[in-house]
């Protein structure tokens, strides 16, 4: 499967967000029922993923992290193979070895996914160095969170990318949570974008819950990286509305803050806007939801039918 073409129809953006939500909700209920392992979801952050990934070209390379469902699905990943991977099955993108946490799909240009917070930032300059030295046109897009921005690797990565003129679009999905710690308790600044200036890297923040704003900002940022062959940092401001790792009762979350962000749900906002401006009818909205539900049901059936890896797989692919 090749990376999917960027969506131009706003209804497609909505459908992609619905697919991410339905996919992650299937995992949440699957894990509650004891059929799947717990995962780190990106519920509430769908617009940030869909907006940015739709701004990319097919030959761009993506590095992501443990909250990768939105990046993978928007890039065209098959939800059946993703669910198979989450369930440790043979037909998963990584033959069931990754589980949910480190899914790479080289065929989609999603490379070197690491769940070590900040590792994506460590690896990105090398991927960009390959693009540059081997004369490849694609830029490198590195998705990380505000938690990773507090790792030393963030600062080392930005310094080297600026020093070596590496074509990296750094995308910080600031979801306000660093595992079980609120961003306020862990960051000296309000925004990760503030730190980019120290390295001479242009940066901006955008509302990560507005898919159209995120798409426009990412298109401009990607164009700048493509033209300048230099790094750029885009911070999508959003909110992780579920816990760090399912199951999570979120007892540590300020309920007023959570309610305020739930009221700004990116999917509801997009749907309401499309209904209001007439580009979507209620019947079309219902059809989109139905189509997504069907895809997830088919994906789930595929994943459940996929066998577990054979015992001989235990030590395969350790060495080249």
């Amino acid at each position: 499967m090749k990376p999917s073409h960027p969506a131009s129809d706003p209804r497609q953006l909505l459908e992609q967000m619905l697919l991410i939500r339905a996919y992650e909700e299937a995992i949440v209920s699957g894990s509650a029922a004891g059929k799947m392992p717990g995962t780190c979801t990106s519920v509430g952050q769908e617009a940030a993923a869909v907006g940015v990934v739709n701004a990319l070209a097919a030959d761009d390379l993506i590095l992501t992290n443990h909250r990768s469902a939105g990046h993978l699905l928007t890039r065209g990943a098959d939800p059946g193979r993703l669910l198979a991977e989450v369930m440790g099955r043979r037909d998963g993108y990584c033959k069931g070895r990754s589980g949910s946490l480190h899914i790479s799909a080289k065929e989609l240009g999603v490379v070197l996914t690491s769940t070590i917070v900040g590792a994506e930032l460590s690896l990105a300059p090398g991927v960009a160095l390959s693009q540059t030295m081997l004369g490849r046109p694609g830029i490198v897009v590195c998705f990380f969170g505000d938690g990773a921005a507090c790792e030393g690797s963030f600062h080392e990565s930005l310094n080297l990318a600026a020093l070596w003129n590496l074509p990296i679009l750094y995308v910080c999905e600031n979801n306000q949570w660093q595992a079980f710690v609120h961003r306020r308790e862990a960051m000296s600044r309000e925004h990760v974008a503030d730190w980019a200036a120290a390295y001479g890297i242009p940066a901006r923040t955008v509302d990560g819950n507005d898919v159209f704003a995120a798409l426009a900002a990412a298109q401009a940022a990607a164009a700048e990286v493509r033209d300048s062959r230099r790094p750029y940092l885009l911070e999508t401001c959003t909110y992780r509305t579920r816990g760090h790792l399912e199951p999570d009762d979120q007892g540590y979350v300020d309920q007023a803050e959570l309610a305020a962000w739930l009221a700004r749900d990116p999917i509801a906002a997009c749907r309401d806007r499309l209904l209001a401006d007439g580009s979507l009818t209620p019947a079309q909205a219902a059809a989109l939801s139905d189509r997504v539900s069907t895809r997830i049901a088919v994906a789930q059936a595929f994943a459940e039918a996929s066998p577990f890896p054979a015992a001989e797989e235990l030590c395969r692919d350790v060495y080249a």
């Binding site: 070895r97 480190h102 799909a105 080289k106 070197l112 996914t113 350790v318």
Partner: peptide
């Protein structure tokens, strides 16, 4: 990451 990615 070679192993975890299924040898990709």
């Amino acid at each position: 990451l070679r192993y975890l990615s299924g040898g990709q």
